[in-house]
């Protein structure tokens, strides 16, 4: 399938990309391309220009600053999956990364792309909600950091403004066990439902992706769990815990089935963090 024609610009550095983005409001950023190119092939997007940021060193790299893990937006899923620093600081991230697509997709797709695209079936948003991540957004006019709770607004909707680029993902060092469980679409491997759980000294956090227009915390499950991670309590806190009312329904899974899966996956994830 051919996309519609576009002009191709390879950014030489981040400032160059930001300037081109400011000058071409209709342009899209091309990083891993694993959401953008399929969308363009289906003609759901037909930008007049693409700004290729995939080779920018400024968007690469995994580093730490005190207890903060900082991922460049251009870090690929495969880099996340096999990196020792990520495994030490936020093991929930590779536990999600292993579920993303397949080895070829993981070699190209980027964590920043997932954050910017905000696909309702993306894996990371669930874990990022439990980890309390934040995102550095840069524009030609400046930069700001937005917390995960304020960032994801809805289906493909985020706090990103026109002209802004996600440059970094900040993840506070994970305290306690985390786990991600997923029921995936057998062909695309996107989440039909995914649930992340994190048991830290601050309490137990649970978040769900894939089931609704955006990833959300399952506060009703968190409250029912409290700090009691006994088998019985996990079972009772997750059974029929999710209301189908606000969930997505499509030819792959009804809202009721997604609600059922969310309970089952929450149980499995919580069993792994106890």
């Amino acid at each position: 399938m051919y996309t519609t024609p576009f002009d191709y610009h390879r950014a030489v550095n981040l400032d160059d990309a930001l300037k081109m983005l400011a000058d071409n409001p209709d342009a899209k950023l091309l990083a891993g391309g694993h959401s953008l190119i399929p969308t363009m092939k289906l003609r759901l997007a037909s930008p007049s220009a693409l700004i290729d940021i995939s080779a920018l060193d400024e968007l690469r790299g995994i580093r730490t600053d005190g207890d903060m893990l900082i991922l460049g937006a251009g870090v690929t899923h495969a880099e996340l999956l096999y990196d020792k620093t990520v495994a030490e600081y936020a093991p929930l991230m590779p536990d999600m990364a292993r579920w993303v697509g397949d080895p070829m997709v993981r070699n190209r797709g980027t964590v920043g792309g997932v954050v910017a695209h905000a696909d309702p079936a993306a894996d990371y948003p669930a874990g990022l909600l439990t980890l309390g991540a934040s995102f550095k957004l840069k524009s030609a006019g400046g930069e700001r950091v937005v917390g995960v709770d304020d960032y994801f607004k809805g289906m493909f909707e985020t706090a990103l403004q026109e002209g802004e680029i996600v440059t970094e993902i900040h993840i506070p060092r994970q305290a306690g066990k985390g786990a991600y469980e997923k029921f995936r679409h057998p062909a695309s491997h996107y989440a039909i439902v995914g649930v992340a759980a994190l048991a830290s000294p601050e309490g137990v956090k649970v978040a769900m992706t894939g089931a609704g227009p955006k990833a959300v915390r399952l506060t009703q499950v968190e409250q029912a769990i409290g700090s009691d991670l006994s088998d019985e309590n996990i079972k009772s806190a997750t059974e029929n815990a999710v209301d189908a009312g606000s969930l997505l329904s499509d030819r792959f899974a009804s809202a009721e089935y997604r609600a059922h899966l969310a309970g089952v996956l929450a149980k499995r994830a919580l069993m792994r963090v106890k």
Binding site: Y8, R10, L30, G33, H34, I37, P38, D52, S54, A78, P103, M104, V105, N107, R108
Partner: peptide, 15 residues
């Protein structure tokens, strides 16, 4: 691509 497997239907040749 540079030693890593990729899906060549999801990559522009210019990249």
């Amino acid at each position: 691509l540079n030693g890593e497997a990729v899906k060549s239907c999801t990559l522009f040749a210019v990249q």
